[in-house]
Amino acid sequence: MSEYQYYEFQAVDRPLTKDELEGIRALSSRARISATHFVNEYHYGNFRGDERKLMEQVYDAHLYFANWGSRRLMLRLPTTLLPARSAEPYCAEGALTSWTRKGHLLLDFAYEAEDGGEWDFETSFTLASFTTLRTELAAGDLRPLYLAWLSALTRWELEEDVDEDEYTSTVEPPVPAGLARLTGPQQALADFLNVDPHLLTAAARASSAAPSRTGDKDALTAWIRALPPREKDTLLLDAALGTAPQPGPVLLARHRAASRGTAEPSTATRRRSAAELLDAAHDVRSEHTRQQEQARAQARRAEQGARESHLDRLAKNTEQAWQDIAHLIGQKQPGPYDAAVTLLKDLREVHDRAGTPEEFTRHLYDLREQHRSKPSLMRRFTDADLTAR
């Protein structure tokens, strides 16, 4: 299997300067590079840059994946929007790490397939699917961080040398609201990190509903209206000139902090242990399997019922069915030939149910004798085991 690696970086809050851009271009001669974007694919060799340093210095988002199962998403936000202490409870080895540099919090989401697995050539990702996560995190929505912790637990469950006491002593981080209904970028992140959907369902049981958009909008409108005019003028000017990060996340974070964090993780619910969550996920998985089996059984019964009804209708007028078969064969085309064979197999079953298989055999013998000069039709008869015995 040939090697494949994908690298993408994006500058969101400000474009790169001329000097920064020249430094980036020196790292790759084949990449698509602009003042806000870097994209390159490698089928051999490796990227010469240091992703961590580039994120610390110039970029706000980075995506990497390789065909042997490695995946990485990095996001950078000002610590004024998302302080390090908010992310720390969700950090987990191999899934999420965080650190601060020059007034920014950096989040490193990662997934590493244990055995690499077979590469799905239909699988690909783009950074555009994930960049909105920065805005959500900046506004106080910590669901992306909790998803990373669930990803770590998903992989931890598969390890063979874990002491059962570790599962019991490890407690989940604060549970954010809205886990039962993820946003599009959050669902993309859950898929990217291979979060067990049954574990997510179990975890969401302790998650309150996300705040109403309408109610939140009304409260936000009133709060913005109360801001000093000079401050609003400054925000609008910065937005128009692009001299500061987008004001939307800043305002949302300030508003939610002022209203005591309506989107902050719920602390009222008792924190569950990893063992409790895994047990709950097992129950969800078992129930899901039971429902699937039940649905398949219902589908089989419905299909069988429809089949029986069809044969009952056919049994009421077998002579018309034989005439229809003659008409289909007379068209001398592959499609009608196939339809005739299908109808013949149905008639055979009808006669078997009625206890008159000899009558079907007689009709079939006459049919084969009449059309023995049609090799394509005869071949279809043979393949369908429609032979006169």
Rank of each mutant, 00 (worst) to 15 (best):
L236Y: 08
S259I: 01
A66I: 09
E308P: 09
R313P: 06
A11E: 03
L142Y: 11
R348G: 08
G261S: 05
E172C: 12
H255W: 11
R260A: 10
A275H: 13
Q10G: 00
Q331N: 06
G178E: 01
R272F: 03
V195D: 02
F109P: 02
A203T: 04
D324Y: 02
S124Q: 14
Y111V: 00
L96N: 14
A31S: 10
D161F: 04
S266H: 03
E20S: 12
E276H: 05
A128H: 06
I24K: 04
A177V: 08
Q57A: 11
Q294M: 11
E293L: 10
H327N: 10
G305R: 15
L105I: 05
D324S: 13
T183N: 07
L344D: 10
D324Q: 15
D13I: 08
T126S: 15
G103M: 12
I329C: 02
D324L: 07
D165N: 08
L16G: 05
E88D: 14
R181P: 01
G178D: 01
D161T: 13
F192Y: 07
D191T: 07
T387H: 03
R72W: 11
L235E: 08
T79W: 06
G242K: 05
Q10K: 09
R256S: 09
D191S: 06
Y44P: 00
A268P: 00
P173W: 02
A315K: 09
Y146F: 13
K102C: 04
E308K: 15
Y337I: 02
T97G: 13
L220E: 07
L147K: 07
A152W: 07
D165Q: 14
S28L: 02
Q291V: 04
Q331A: 05
W156E: 09
A384D: 00
E231C: 10
Y337M: 04
N46S: 14
